[in-house]
Design a binder for these strands. Structure first.
Length: 505
DNA sequence: TTGTCCGTTGGCACT
DNA sequence: TAGTGCCAACGGACA
């Protein structure tokens, strides 16, 4: 008997059923094969070294998202097949074993996935497998936006907006009709394909911090609907007026759901349009919620069109800056032990909860790079990759370049003060008291600057500097001025190099 | 080529 | 409390 061919949908950063064009393609392919039976296998590949690549909070978010995805797929009378191994090694073998004729997936920008796809494409071509990749992770097709700009990367947000104005955004799609039993392969019920627990991956779940943002499509959609119901709030939203150091998030925290594809960016777009269209006035990009979504599109476009976007060297949009190396300072920063309470509180919130406010990211990124520690943005990006639930290849690199004044933003003399910046929205230092509990009892006048507290105050508050909490590792007032000079010199050199490269006519 | 305006969200002193 | 001007002076876009 001839083997029954299979159709694979390969889930990556599209952990959802709703608005999943590529999944629908796979399902349609199976359904249309009326008189020639096809099996459907929606797969997700867990790489062996995932624990080294993905921080524990994000790994938990991923596993939760996969569990939710599996349960949503089962409502369609199919399931998620988890594959354990390296995608580029494993998939080619399964192409033969499963008689794969058709492979669908989302079109991704993330460099690692793009490289993976190149390998798979080559194999698929040899084996005569039809590959379908759909644009569905962004609102716009970033490659056609680049084309519209004659292949050049838009270097300003306004330029990007002007490129996408007038582009019609397609409607979202839904998949509701369940599949027939004919689509189930014989090993459908095998436990080998079950979503692993964190324990299976070698992680002690009980040792993790409490889960503040559970992963999954269901949770993402609930969160979206909850915020979109607050129409006034949506219409008045202005990012700079939200607080980086409120005890509960002052923004939506939809980002982890969008970055994992639990939530469709296009659905977010349409829901926002709906709310905005129903209001007499609403805030505008860049500060509005729609503006935030457009920032994501901006960085995706830049990431797709720039070589070595996540690196300094060999990256055409990135100013070359002679960053220093200081592993001790880097470690202190990453672990929230710099002696600057505001910086430390943010870094500890990041490590514990996997999410920090965008402006908090500005604060700590500026501090690590051009502001205080003079350490490369690439080092900071690696730490964020590890800790952030909403880690996203394009956004992470793009924002780090922005904050370090390496690309897109150039006013390097605008430096965030680790003392003044937080005070604007949290005079009492409640945020610091929560995340740096050593300082909980400090008088308000010293909460942002504990080094100014007399020894007697330190003792009374139960936190002596250098014993219970670190002394500050740098003197911001002094060092940020020195760093500004270094930035100025780097810019000057960059300008000269550019002038030399320019053709003389 | 040069000038001008503008740019997601700084800090600080002052009114 | 919010607004303004100064700090020192960037690159991109466009005329």
């Amino acid at each position: 008997m001839a083997k029954v061919p299979s159709v694979i949908h390969w889930f990556r950063l599209d952990l959802r059923i709703h608005d999943n064009l590529a999944l629908r393609n796979a399902i349609n392919e199976v359904r249309q094969a009326e008189n020639r039976k096809h099996f459907l296998r929606p797969v997700y590949v867990i790489e062996p070294d995932i624990k080294n690549k993905v921080g524990e909070n994000r790994l938990r978010f991923l596993i939760q998202s996969l569990q939710d995805l599996d349960s949503n797929l089962r409502k369609l009378n199919t399931r998620l097949f988890i594959l354990r191994g390296t995608a580029t090694e494993l998939l080619p073998k399964l192409f033969d074993k499963w008689q794969v004729k058709h492979l669908t997936s989302q079109l991704d920008i993330d460099r690692d996935i793009v490289l993976q796809d190149e390998v798979i494409d080559e194999v698929a071509e040899k084996k005569d497998i039809f590959i379908v990749r759909r644009v569905q992770h962004t609102v716009y097709d970033v490659h056609s936006v680049l084309k519209k700009n004659n292949g050049a990367v838009p270097l300003t947000y306004q330029k990007f907006l002007s490129l996408v104005t007038g582009i019609q955004v397609k409607d979202t799609i839904e998949i509701t009709k369940a599949l027939s039993d004919n689509c189930k392969p014989p090993d459908f019920d095998s436990k080998d394909y079950d979503v692993p627990s964190l324990e299976d991956l070698g992680l002690d779940e009980s040792a993790l911090n409490p889960c503040k943002y559970p992963g999954g499509e269901t949770e993402g959609l609930n969160r979206l609907n909850m915020y979109m119901a607050k129409k006034q709030w949506v219409c008045k939203f202005e990012k700079p007026n939200t607080s980086p150091n409120s005890i509960e998030p002052s923004t939506t925290v939809l980002s982890p759901y969008i970055s994992h594809g639990c939530l469709s960016a296009k659905l977010f777009y349409h829901k926002l349009k709906e709310v905005e269209n129903g209001a007499s006035t609403h805030s505008q990009p860049p500060v509005s919620l729609m503006g935030q979504l457009m920032w994501r599109e901006f960085y995706y476009t830049a990431g797709a069109g720039t070589k070595n976007f996540d690196k300094m060297v060999g990256n055409p949009v990135c100013t070359q800056i002679p960053w220093g190396k200081n592993d001790e300072h880097l470690k202190a920063w990453a672990e929230g032990q710099t002696g600057y309470p505001f910086v430390d509180a943010i870094m500890r919130q990041l490590k514990q909860e996997g999410w920090i406010h965008h402006l908090a990211r500005h604060m700590v990124a500026c501090f690590l790079t051009r502001g205080d520690l003079w350490i490369s943005w690439e080092e900071g990006a690696k730490v964020f990759e590890d800790y952030l639930l909403d880690y996203d290849w394009s956004l992470n690199a793009g924002n780090w370049m922005w904050l370090s004044a390496s690309a897109f933003f150039y006013k390097y003399f605008r430096v965030y003060s680790p003392v003044a910046f937080g005070k604007k929205t949290d005079k009492e230092g409640l945020f610091i008291r929560k995340y740096v509990p050593e300082l909980k009892k400090y008088p308000t006048e010293y909460i942002y600057e504990p080094w100014k507290a007399p020894k007697s105050v330190q003792t009374t508050a139960g936190c002596v500097l250098g014993v219970d909490y670190p002394k500050r590792i740098v003197d911001h007032d002094k060092i940020h001025k020195e760093n500004m000079q270094k930035m100025s010199a780097a810019y000057k050199l960059n300008k000269e190099k550019k002038a030399m490269k320019r053709p003389h006519t």
